[in-house]
Structures are given as structure tokens and as C-alpha cells.
Amino acid sequence: MPESDPMSAHPATPNGCQGTPRSFGNALPVLNEIRHALEKLVTTGEETRIDLSALPFGPGDLDRLTDWLGTGEVEATVDALGPTRVQETAIPGVWLVDYHNSEQQRLTLHIEVAPVPEILRPQPQDLADALNQLDARLEQETGTTPLSS
């Protein structure tokens, strides 16, 4: 990953003087929470978001959690109000959504347990607008109004 590792716990923190960060044991409960969420997604289709920046992690805890979750196939960046990096973990359906501002500072970090993170999906109002937009473009290209059926 690039120098500004989006999944790193403390992008702004230089390595502590003690070297390797220790685990403070606060990551494991989150893993359990993710498991519950995944179970819910599988059985009822209900999606879950976990705000990792609201958890009392010690140095190293977040790294350990992301290490555990691993890296999956999908990686995406949403460019709106600064970059938002979406990374699928090695567990399908579990996503890391890392919200940054335009100055590369993290706003918040979520785990989303969903088929696709919400921020990747077009918003319903945007979809409604999309049709109009496309029609407008077609009209521009062909000069005719497309048949609506």
C-alpha cells in the first residue's frame, strides 16, 4: 500500500520509541461484534456499521484488528468532500470505510457489514436525477426524445 496507508491505525503517528506496538486486548471484542453483524447480514439481510473511531483502542489494537481482517479483492475511492477509501477485507461482506478530508486527515473509520457499502451505491435521489441526465445527453446527441416505455 502507498505511504499514506489508509488502513493504518495512526497515519500521523510515528513509530513509538518502544518499537512494536502491543496489543491491549481491545480488538478481539470488535471481531466478535463483526461476527454477530455478519450473521445478521446472512440471516436477515440487515446491514451494520461500526464506528471504529469511537472505540477505546490502545496503540496497536487497530492494526491488529485490520491485520486479522486482512485484505480482499475490492478497493475503491470515492471522491467527495475529500477521499473516502473503501477496502474489502478478506471476509466478504466486511468492509473498511475510511473517511478522509481533502487534507488527508481521517474524519472517521467505519466497518460496514453489507453486500456493498452504502457510500459506493448511487443514492436514490441521484438515480432519479440520473435518468433525466441521461435523457438530456441523448437529446443532445440525437436531437430526439427517447421513448419512454
Binding site: 468532500l81 473517511y99 472517521t108 457510500i119 435521489q125
Partner: peptide, 9 residues
Amino acid sequence: RRGFLKLCA
């Protein structure tokens, strides 16, 4: 809208 969603998050 995505930006707004991000703002809300």
C-alpha cells in the same frame, strides 16, 4: 449526495 452522506457519517 455522497459527500453529504460522508458528512453525516
